[in-house]
């Protein structure tokens, strides 16, 4: 089922990404920030993909830890890697925009801090899986679960500080040209996320079945 869907999804993602620059170019200029505002069309969708991935990783880890589903572990591993990749895109595009809009590369703002901490938790997750040796999947699942539980606390603890990041209320106020470009890019990033996720989970399952075959051969 997922294999049959894979090719159409790849095609759709490619088409959406090919058209996205045109829509972004056609979208009207923002009156104060000008050209640099256009980073937003890639910045917000990449963080959206990152948060979806983080959520997938947390839920899949819980399934693996409490129900013992091996598939949960494969999905969690794939989701953690993608969370780091999409988070990196967000962390690179953000400061580029902030330098122009706020005059600084980085602000210790609630959203920025929370995003950075979450990103670091996923890096530690990957480090544990990579260097923890056998049996580290279970420990990693614990990290993912604690990482998810941590998000509201980090957000709460930095929210008392002055916030400068635009809130989600910005989205409905966008003029139609900007809104279309944003939703289009968001669709593109989520399609890209879905396809890479499918490929990555498949790779994990293939690896697992190869291991199984080797073990059967040894027995």
């Amino acid at each position: 089922m997922t294999q049959r869907l894979f090719l159409p999804l790849v095609v759709a993602a490619t088409v959406v990404f090919a058209v996205a620059p045109l829509l972004i170019a056609w979208a009207p200029y923002e009156s104060t920030m000008g050209l640099v505002q256009k980073i937003f069309y890639f910045h917000m969708p990449s963080w959206a993909a990152m948060f979806v991935s983080a959520l997938v990783c947390g839920v899949a880890s819980a399934f693996f830890l409490f129900k013992g589903h091996a598939t949960g572990d494969r999905i969690a591993a794939a989701a953690a890697e993608l969370a780091v990749v999409f988070g990196l895109i967000g962390l690179v595009t953000g400061p580029l925009w902030a330098r122009k809009a706020w005059g600084v590369w980085w602000q210790w703002d609630a959203r920025l801090t929370m995003a950075l901490v979450l990103w670091m938790i996923f890096i530690s997750y990957l480090l544990l899986r990579e260097y923890g040796g056998p049996g580290s999947e279970k420990l990693a699942a614990g990290v993912a679960l604690f990482g998810m539980a941590n998000v509201p606390f980090v957000y709460w603890s930095v929210n008392v500080w002055r916030t400068v990041h635009p809130t989600t209320n910005v989205v409905p106020t966008l003029v139609p040209g900007m809104r279309i470009a944003l939703w289009w890019s968001l669709a593109g990033f989520l399609l890209l996320y879905t396809t890479t996720m499918m490929a990555r989970v498949r790779l994990e399952s293939q690896r697992a079945s190869l291991d199984r075959l080797y073990r059967d051969l040894d027995d």
Binding site: V117, S124, L127, L128, F146, N150, V154, W156, S157
Partner: peptide, 9 residues
Amino acid sequence: VLLYPLTIP
């Protein structure tokens, strides 16, 4: 590596 990001709050 695991503990510091998780105990930031």
